[in-house]
Every structure is written in structure tokens, then in C-alpha cells.
């Protein structure tokens, strides 16, 4: 209702706001909120939305960044299906993701259970375990290059203690990917551990007491009490880990450059090569779009099956 509809209250405008009086838009809460949101929103639109939409569009063009883009419809996508490097990259990325996610989630959980107790100095242990997560990947990758050196590296020296002749990790088509997975696990399990610790500490002691009264101990208590109560955290960690593993790039670039052969060429590394080494930005965008589709499908599938095993009670 507007002020015109209330002629018997002519002094409304000067007597301050009333529930029936609609303020001018520029004085409304909505307007103030919009003003406060403007910097972040415009940044988001300009630097996130626009590039993402542009990447979608570029995938249908042939463009070298300098000349005029040429519309070529779905030809970039058709070429992808016949590109054996792309297919190898798809396989490598899946291999890496399965390896890193299973190991870093289970190791993260194990570490969380081990350090989730009140012992003097346990904080130091937690910090040490979480440290790899906060170090710069490129710097660590250079250290790991040394660890994997066949003659002078730490890894083969350790294996040598047990009489195992270690391979030439990074220059072997068989062992290069496991080497990257190992480093990926080392780098990421600390983050998972922190989240699991938070989850474990949120489990009320009364539940454990009840379980103890019912006679559940050790393994049974873990499987039937801890794990279900931890399932929301577990679900979150799995989703996040899978997405970040799909995006692996820097460690492969520094450690192996995608080789030997195409043994460690991941999707994002291939996007980089297609765009910034070969100047096929349309093709690179098409790969990026495929990666997006894969991540979307995997995440939706996880959301679909989560109802069966994640309990929010």
C-alpha cells in the first residue's frame, strides 16, 4: 500500500517510517545490502563468471589468442575422442584420483584416530602431520624429485635397507604415477586428518558410554558408532578430495613434465600444454569443459548415493 492510499495520514512522511510506508528504494535495507555486496559480487561476476562463460564459448572456436576466433562447432570435441594423449590423460587422472583419494582419506582417518587423544605434546604431532598440506607444492616437488632419484635418493636408500632394489621412479612409465600418488597422499592426508579430528571430537561421549553399556568394544564400536557419526565429514572429505585430485597439475609439471611418454600427463597439464605451449585455446577449453563434465557427473553420483550411507542424525 502506498502513502497515496492513506490520505488521512498526511504527516506520514515526516513522522518517520511506519509499517505501511514504503521507503524510497535507496533507503531500503535491500539497497544497503546490495551496496555492501557490490564489491564482492562485481569481482565474482567479472573474474569468475565471465571467464568461466568465456571458457565455455571458446571451446567451440579455433583461437590462438592473437588472431580472430573461428567458430568450428563441435569439431574440438570430435578431435578429443580421437586424441590418444587426451584419452591417456583421462585415464591417468582417474588413476591418480583413485589412488590419492583412497589412501589419503584412510590415512587421514587413521592419523586422526591416533592423535585424537589427550597426551602431552600431541599438538606437536598434529602440526607435524598437517605440515605437508600447508607447504608450497612446487617447493616440495623439488625435494621429492631428490627423494625419488634412483642412485642418491632417500626412497631407494630406504628400500635398500630391506634389500629391495628400487626403480628409477620418475623416469619409469610404470612407477612415475605411483610416485606422484605417494607424494599427493603425503601432501593431502594432513588436511583430511584435521577435518576428521574435528569430526571425532564432535561425537558425544554419552554415545560411547551407551555403546559400552551395550557391550560394544574396539572394532565394533568404531564400525557401528564412530563411523556412522563421522559419515558427514567422510562424505565432505571424499567429495573435496576427488575434485582436488582431478585438478592435479603442479606436481606433475615439476616432477615429470607429464612423462615418461604420457605416463603422468594429467587433464589439467594437458590443458596447459594445449593452451600455452601449442596455442590452441579452443581445444584447451574443450578439454577443460570435459573435465568439468567429469567432475560434475562424479559429484552428482556421490550426492545421489550419499543418502544410503551418510547419516546426519
Amino acid at each position: 500500500m502506498t502513502s497515496d492510499a492513506t490520505p488521512r495520514l498526511p504527516d506520514t512522511r515526516t513522522s518517520g517510517p511506519s509499517p505501511r510506508y514504503r521507503q524510497p528504494f535507496y533507503r531500503s535495507n535491500g539497497f544497503s545490502a546490495a551496496l555492501f555486496l557490490l564489491p564482492a559480487t562485481s569481482g565474482f561476476l567479472l573474474f569468475v563468471c565471465l571467464p568461466v562463460l568465456a571458457a565455455f564459448a571458446i571451446a567451440f572456436f579455433q583461437w590462438d589468442l592473437v588472431g580472430t576466433p573461428q567458430f568450428i562447432g563441435l569439431r574440438n570435441f570430435a578431435a578429443l575422442l580421437k586424441d590418444r594423449v587426451f584419452l591417456a590423460a583421462l585415464w591417468n587422472t582417474a588413476y591418480y584420483t583413485v589412488g590419492v583419494v583412497t589412501l589419503s582419506v584412510s590415512l587421514g582417518l587413521l592419523a586422526a584416530i591416533l592423535v585424537n587423544r589427550a597426551i602431552r605434546g600431541i599438538g606437536i604431532a598434529r602440526v607435524l602431520l598437517a605440515m605437508p598440506y600447508v607447504t608450497v607444492t612446487v617447493a616440495m616437488a623439488i625435494v621429492w624429485r631428490w627423494i625419488y632419484q634412483p642412485e642418491i635418493g632417500l626412497m631407494n636408500a630406504l628400500l635398500g635397507v630391506f634389500g629391495i632394489p628400487g626403480p628409477n621412479w620418475l623416469s619409469s612409465r610404470v612407477w612415475a604415477m605411483p610416485a606422484l600418488i605417494l607424494m599427493g597422499v603425503w601432501k593431502s592426508f594432513g588436511y583430511n586428518m584435521i577435518l576428521f579430528i574435528a569430526g571425532l571430537q564432535a561425537v558425544p561421549a554419552s554415545v560411547y558410554e551407551a555403546a559400552a553399556i551395550d557391550g560394544a568394544t574396539g572394532y565394533k564400536r568404531f564400525v557401528h558408532v564412530t563411523l556412522p557419526l563421522l559419515s558427514p565429514v567422510l562424505f565432505f572429505i571424499t567429495v573435496i578430495s576427488i575434485i582436488s585430485s582431478f585438478e592435479v597439475f603442479d606436481s606433475a609439471l615439476v616432477m615429470t613434465g607429464g612423462g615418461p611418454g604420457t605416463a603422468t600427463t594429467t587433464l589439467v597439464l594437458y590443458i596447459y600444454e594445449a593452451g600455452f605451449e601449442s596455442f590452441h585455446f579452443g581445444y584447451a577449453s574443450a578439454i577443460a569443459l570435459s573435465l568439468f563434465a567429469v567432475v560434475l557427473v562424479v559429484t552428482l553420483a556421490q550426492l545421489a548415493v550419499q543418502r544410503r550411507w551418510v547419516s546426519y542424525d
Binding site: S171, R173, E273
Partner: peptide
């Protein structure tokens, strides 16, 4: 790049 993927590994193995 193609040579790096196809030929280079043979220098090691």
C-alpha cells in the same frame, strides 16, 4: 611434444 612422449622414454629404457 610428440617426440617427448614417443621417443624420449626409449633413451632411458
Amino acid at each position: 611434444q610428440a617426440a617427448r612422449q614417443t621417443l624420449t622414454p626409449l633413451f632411458a629404457e
